[in-house]
């Protein structure tokens, strides 16, 4: 996994609730990667973290008009660059 510096891409799970970002790359493999791709999680797509489950994991993300719940461990494999500083 990449090291996340201040300006480098971070894991999707590290976004704050409501925060928007752009997907840089998807480090997932195999079945998970294909499923994520079909849902619209691939490089260049805008994404927003919309909901966090009460126990902190999983969280839900808005991509291409639909909201998908992803566990944090899997979401960490989707590297994003935040386009907003703060969440809503």
């Amino acid at each position: 996994m990449e090291k996340c510096g201040d300006k480098g891409p971070i894991g999707l799970n590290e976004l704050k609730q409501g925060q928007r970002a752009r997907i840089e790359r998807v480090l997932a493999q195999g079945d998970l990667k294909l499923k994520l791709t079909e849902l619209g999680f691939f490089a260049g797509e805008p994404v927003q973290k919309t909901l966090v489950s009460p126990l902190g994991d999983p969280a839900a993300y808005l991509v291409r008009g639909s909201i998908t719940a992803i566990r944090n461990a899997d979401a960490a494999l989707v590297r994003v660059l935040p386009t907003e500083r703060q969440g809503v």
Binding site: L32, K35, L51, A60, S66, I67, T68, I70, R71, D74
Partner: peptide
């Protein structure tokens, strides 16, 4: 397995 679920 990975857990991906749509929230309609």
């Amino acid at each position: 397995s990975p857990f991906l679920m749509e929230l309609p």
